[in-house]
């Protein structure tokens, strides 16, 4: 089963005794703050988990696969995630996808 916001809220409620409304607000704000930082061009470094990095990519040549026409792919900013050592090691020890 996939982990979603609803499931995170449920776990906070079970483990920490936050009420459902508090837990929902917290989970939403948690991801919102990370998003806002990234939108502002700030990297987000969560020790023990990983780093979200904002990268600027220059314009590069592309092609319309249907028509074969050359079209440049515009410069853009993208978010990448690099899992931290701790998470990588833990996943490598345990994980076998469902």
């Amino acid at each position: 089963m996939t982990l979603t916001k609803a499931e995170l809220i449920e776990q906070l409620y079970d483990d920490l005794g936050l009420n459902k409304r508090e837990a929902k607000e917290f989970v939403e704000q948690f991801f919102e703050e990370i998003k806002d930082a990234l939108v502002a061009g700030q990297d987000v470094k969560l020790s023990g988990f990983g780093n979200f990095i904002v990268r600027s990519k220059g314009e590069r040549p592309g092609r319309n696969p249907k028509t074969g026409a050359d079209i440049p792919i515009a410069a853009r900013r993208v978010v990448t995630f690099r899992a931290g050592q701790k998470l990588k090691a833990r996943v490598d020890r345990n994980a076998r996808p469902e």
Partner: peptide
């Protein structure tokens, strides 16, 4: 992730 579970936010 360690359980091999996907996460969708």
């Amino acid at each position: 992730l360690c359980k091999g579970q996907r996460i969708e936010i």
